[in-house]
Amino acid sequence: MPSETPQAEVGPTGCPHRSGPHSAKGSLEKGSPEDKEAKEPLWIRPDAPSRCTWQLGRPASESPHHHTAPAKSPKILPDILKKIGDTPMVRINKIGKKFGLKCELLAKCEFFNAGGSVKDRISLRMIEDAERDGTLKPGDTIIEPTSGNTGIGLALAAAVRGYRCIIVMPEKMSSEKVDVLRALGAEIVRTPTNARFDSPESHVGVAWRLKNEIPNSHILDQYRNASNPLAHYDTTADEILQQCDGKLDMLVASVGTGGTITGIARKLKEKCPGCRIIGVDPEGSILAEPEELNQTEQTTYEVEGIGYDFIPTVLDRTVVDKWFKSNDEEAFTFARMLIAQEGLLCGGSAGSTVAVAVKAAQELQEGQRCVVILPDSVRNYMTKFLSDRWMLQKGFLKEEDLTEKKPWWWHLRVQELGLSAPLTVLPTITCGHTIEILREKGFDQAPVVDEAGVILGMVTLGNMLSSLLAGKVQPSDQVGKVIYKQFKQIRLTDTLGRLSHILEMDHFALVV
């Protein structure tokens, strides 16, 4: 994948999101292997301009796509893939009243899908469409860049269908997702969380590099694949309309690839034109409109599966009536509230959605109805927002919020430890010299600072030695090549209790 991002070429006709291997024109390309080798690009942008032909009021008969309808489940399912879809609609009884809503608040519980998330729908649909058009064949390999849930859905379907599955996901995604993927037989590649989507090191860039190296491999490409919004247009939206008897006044959905909100909203605009569509985008993402909503100094966020630093091709923002931004604290607070007060075992993005819903639905009156999409299960986040310690460490809970008995030293300040200034190293000294210094002084790690004293990161003896043994660096290389740029900081005025929580999850903390 090139470091400079080429513009994806656009073909003359058809839909841009065809499933299957992508040609340089962004659509299915038939021909000899030699032709494909000559024409197939190194990668295709996940934010390529959409060429979708959908228009409100256009006859369904003019759609270029294969459409399906929700099917009634048999008493005995032939395999677990038949437990994807037909998820329950559940009334939220307490939270709406707590925040003064007059309307009825309903939750579409997508964590009841077989793999635990709304992404099971698009995973199965992308595979079925690729099999139907002859792209996927027995023994082929599926590769997908994902925040985890699409990966789980694909790995689940691949396990049943017999495909090899490789999932490329950023490091910030939970260990629970990784464990589930491994249990399903998927191979996992992790990428830096802070890598831009168009960087060769991003999950998108690495996935395309693997595709170019592995024979008979395919990126189904949830960011561009029409099967993504079509899955929701054909099934999720129809289920909502049936469950609500066609009567709903507002739908609120958090947005990642945009397939969920695009597919549902398009069908609702056709069948229930008075329904307002509300999009939820986390602070630090750029999906919301108008652009002024996205202006923030924050560039990272903890909530998973929603928000991006690019506009995915499948996201149709014209069908969203209003956007709201959400933050991590309210997302996790509301997710825990949904679990504790409503018994809905949902993930953090569901918290984002409901946090926005109780604001947006203030305009609705008694007798009206708001539906929220709860995308995934708490299963993926047992060591994250479900953990009091994690919430404390991230600053989303305060010590006084917890009532468990603490040891005698818990409320003492870090400054009472009488710490001395640490050994520091410059980023320009060599790895070999740094190892000598650390061994001589008896230290395992040291902060790396520039000549102005600005902290650049941390270097550890173990990481340097393993990097040297693996051949990633040489003793003569500058130590700046092996620094940890993500590390926890703590102030002298913070409590030892807070430091204790940090050290339970990290090997060190830097006192500043």
Rank of each mutant, 00 (worst) to 15 (best):
R276L: 12
P78I: 05
G246I: 07
R266W: 02
Y233F: 12
T5E: 10
T141Y: 08
K25R: 10
W208N: 09
W208F: 07
A69T: 12
V178P: 07
S254L: 04
R132L: 07
S32F: 06
E110W: 01
V178Q: 03
I166R: 09
R161G: 10
V255N: 07
P41I: 11
E201C: 09
P16G: 09
K30T: 10
V204H: 09
V90D: 01
H232P: 00
I143T: 03
V180H: 04
V206F: 09
K269T: 08
L220T: 00
N212R: 14
H22M: 03
R196T: 10
A265F: 00
K82T: 05
K83Y: 10
A158I: 02
S32Q: 11
G20Q: 10
K72H: 10
A207H: 00
Y233M: 00
L220G: 03
K269C: 13
G205A: 03
T257E: 02
I166P: 01
P59W: 09
C272A: 13
V160M: 08
V180A: 09
F99H: 12
G151N: 02
E239A: 00
R209S: 11
R58P: 10
P21E: 11
D198R: 06
L56N: 12
E176M: 06
G162Y: 01
P2E: 12
H232L: 00
E34L: 04
N113M: 02
G162F: 04
D47G: 07
N194H: 13
E9L: 07
R266M: 05
V252G: 09
C275M: 10
S61A: 13
A60E: 10
L230G: 05
E187H: 10
L28N: 10
K102P: 04
V160K: 04
P145G: 10
G258M: 04
I92C: 08
G85W: 06
K72G: 09
A71G: 14
P88N: 04
M89P: 03
M169R: 07
G116T: 13
T260D: 00
C52F: 00
A60M: 10
P229F: 02
Y163D: 01
L241G: 08
R132P: 09
K98W: 11
Q243M: 09
H17R: 08
E40P: 11
S202K: 06
E201D: 14
K172H: 02
N216P: 06
K72N: 11
G20P: 10
H17P: 08
I80K: 01
A69L: 05
T262I: 00
G115M: 08
I76P: 10
I167G: 08
E110Y: 01
L230D: 05
T87Y: 00
I166Y: 08
I127L: 10
L56Y: 11
G31V: 12
S3G: 11
Q243N: 09
T191K: 02
G205T: 08
P64D: 08
R209C: 08
A183W: 02
G11H: 09
K119N: 02
L105W: 00
T135V: 08
A207I: 00
F197C: 02
G26L: 09
H203S: 09
S23M: 10
A8P: 03
G26F: 10
E34I: 05
T236S: 09
E110M: 01
P49Q: 09
T193Q: 09
G274F: 14
K98G: 14
P41K: 11
P78N: 08
K108G: 01
V189K: 06
L56F: 14
L136W: 07
A48M: 10
L251C: 09
T235A: 13
L154H: 01
K30E: 11
A157V: 09
Q7I: 06
S3V: 13
A24R: 11
P215A: 06
E104Q: 14
R164S: 14
R164Y: 15
L181S: 00
P70F: 06
D140Q: 06
V168T: 04
R224I: 07
E144V: 06
R91P: 09
P64C: 01
E239N: 01
L42E: 10
P46H: 03
I92R: 04
E187P: 10
A157N: 07
G263V: 01
A253T: 15
L136Y: 07
V252P: 09
A195N: 08
V90R: 01
